[in-house]
């Protein structure tokens, strides 16, 4: 069947089997391999993408569910060669090691600070608790999200002035 949707700002129309998981559609059909598969059971969050701005686990969505919707993957974070604040935060705070959970973590973090620009540490920890990281112990991921929130806040102040 044919499914039409927007991904990272570009419209796509693809022919897929109805049972195709969104993560497989993105990785295999579209060749965008930044979205990862870690568990198949919606527990680990390595496959997280944003669907109309909200984080979803793409291993648990079927391709037809994308019809008419907007998807953002890690490949869509940097704009015009400039890293998103969340990417800057992960680099500056050593929020990644093996990098496998990183795309999902960054997307969850980005959605979190867009909904709540000044989250507490507990709010961040709760917000990312659907995503597993085996390497970092989360402390630097929390700092990375705080770093991005602070950068966004500074930019907003600058924008107002």
């Amino acid at each position: 069947m044919k499914v039409t949707f927007e991904i990272n700002g570009a419209e796509k129309s693809v022919d897929v089997e109805a049972r195709t998981l969104v993560v497989d559609l993105i990785r295999t059909k579209l060749g965008m391999t930044g979205t990862h598969i870690g568990c198949d059971t919606s527990n680990c969050g390595a496959c997280t993408v944003l669907l109309d701005g909200r984080p979803v686990k793409s291993c648990t969505l079927l391709a037809p569910m994308l019809e008419g919707r907007k998807v953002t993957t890690v490949e869509g974070l940097a704009q015009g060669g400039k890293l998103d604040a969340i990417q800057e935060g992960f680099h500056a705070e050593h929020g990644l090691q093996c990098g496998f959970c990183t795309p999902g973590m960054m997307l969850v973090g980005k959605a979190l600070i867009e909904a709540n620009p000044h989250p507490t540490e507990d709010e961040i920890r709760w917000g990312i608790s659907g995503n597993i990281c085996r390497c970092t112990g989360y402390m630097n991921i929390v700092k990375a999200i705080q770093h991005a929130a602070a950068a966004n806040a500074a930019e907003n102040v600058a924008g107002v002035a």
Binding site: R27, G31, M32, T33, G34, T35, H36, I37, T73, V74, E75, L77, A78, L83, Q87, F90, H91, A92, H94, L96, G99, F100, T102, P103, M106
Partner: peptide, 21 residues
Amino acid sequence: LARKEDARFLHGQGHYVDDVV
């Protein structure tokens, strides 16, 4: 020193075995 290898992972350009086609 901030990590030299970060850039590819931040862009979703890490290259893992399952990414090999």
